[in-house]
Amino acid sequence: MSSSTDWPLWEVFVRSRRGLSHTHAGSLHAPDAEMALRNARDLYTRRSEGVSIWVIPSTAITASSPDEKDSFFEPAGDKPYRHPTFYEIPDGVKHL
């Protein structure tokens, strides 16, 4: 790789505080994982926005396609009985 080629792209995930999941913060270019972590710290946690960072090569991510979003997520569409609000419970019954 020479200077005329971009460094690989990395996706950055930041845990804002203990007890919460890592959340996608954005992306950046870096030559390797080590530098990606350092760049992520400087770019996405300048104001103590995180206590932990993951960096993942963008090419390692497999994504579902927006074109198939209807058919792909369709199995959940006709199953309202998976929600508690589907069930009718007489008034006055508590803790249910």
């Binding site: 996706e11 995930f13 954005g26 994982a33 960096v55």
Partner: peptide, 22 residues
């Protein structure tokens, strides 16, 4: 990635990636 394998256990699909906030 440097983090252990569990880190990517919930590897983001575009769906989750699109819904997370900055």
């Amino acid at each position: 990635p440097r983090t252990p394998a569990s880190a990517s256990a919930s590897a983001p699909t575009s769906a989750s990636a699109q819904h997370v906030e900055e």
